[in-house]
């Protein structure tokens, strides 16, 4: 009976958190228009969310692209199909690895920072102080961060994919001797703008939305102690990763079919 009870309790807590998260999201949307009227708030957040994540995204993208180029070459060369290297690298990056890996890195770099920042503002009564100054922290603190995260993520994913393809090009064409013309033409013949690129961008947008949502909600809902903040930060990374991977499966099934 005990485990049944604890299962029930866990379920109820989960539903309660989900419900509160959605209500929170509605409030954030309500505060969004205020953010648009004050672009300086948005720019400051684009800096700490987007610009500061740029380095890790670009370096990871380059590495992933180079490894892809190397691995795929070794497989393709067995079939004498190394000319398809560009296609394979580009498709894997644009459809899957770009959005997913960039989103996971985004959750680790920007998401955790967001949770920690908002959580600490709560723990040090800054949010409460803001409320007492008749300023809504949802509008001033949460909404700009949310919007900045949502806008940054597709850009970061695109940078990841583009840099990755250049990395694959460098390894495949520069080091392994694949024909440069074949690399690009095979890629262009088989990567479709709507089917692949636009779907990839949609994916990254959805991931950015969810990861930022989790991050700001965890921060805003944190237990206002040092321990509470550190727990929320961990939760942000773990939950974002779960959400991104689960959503990736759903979106892939919807977009590229096969089920």
């Amino acid at each position: 009976m005990d485990w049944l009870q604890s299962l029930g309790r866990t379920g109820l807590i989960l539903f309660e958190r989900l419900g509160r998260g959605h209500l929170f999201l509605l409030r954030v949307f309500g505060g969004m228009s205020d953010t648009l009227l004050r672009p300086s708030l948005l720019i400051a957040q684009m800096y700490s969310i987007g610009v500061l994540s740029f380095t890790i995204i670009a370096i990871s993208g380059l590495n992933v692209g180079m490894v892809l180029g190397l691995q795929m070459y070794n497989t393709l060369v067995d079939f004498g199909a190394e000319d398809s290297l560009g296609q394979v690298v580009a498709l894997s990056l644009v459809r899957e690895l770009g959005p997913v890996v960039a989103a996971l890195l985004f959750a680790g770099r920007a998401g955790s920072a967001l949770t920690a920042e908002i959580g600490l503002m709560k723990a040090t009564e800054q949010l409460s102080g803001m409320e007492m100054m008749a300023v809504d922290p949802i509008k001033r603190v949460v909404a700009p961060r949310f919007l900045a995260g949502m806008l940054s993520m597709p850009l970061l994913a695109a940078i990841f994919s583009a840099v990755g393809i250049l990395g694959g090009f460098f390894v495949g064409v520069g080091l392994l001797g694949v024909d440069s013309g074949a690399f690009w033409s095979q890629m262009q013949a088989n990567v479709d703008l709507r089917e692949d690129i636009v779907n990839g961008v949609i994916k990254s947008f959805v991931f950015g939305f969810v990861a930022t949502w989790i991050a700001v909600y965890e921060g805003y809902d944190t237990v206002p102690t040092t321990e509470g903040v550190s727990r929320s930060t961990t939760r942000t990374v773990v939950h974002s990763a779960f959400a991104i991977l689960a959503l990736d499966f759903v979106l892939t099934a919807l977009m590229f079919g096969g089920i």
């Binding site: 987007g50 940054s152 940078i159 994919s161 393809i165 990567v191 479709d192 703008l193 690129i197 961008v201």
Partner: peptide
């Protein structure tokens, strides 16, 4: 921030023009 947005848009542009077939 301006550089970041420009880099992001450039990456999207590259994906659209250089990587995929725009004729779609």
């Amino acid at each position: 921030v301006g550089l970041f947005i420009a880099a992001g848009l450039a990456a999207l542009f590259m994906l659209a023009m250089k990587v995929s077939n725009i004729s779609a």
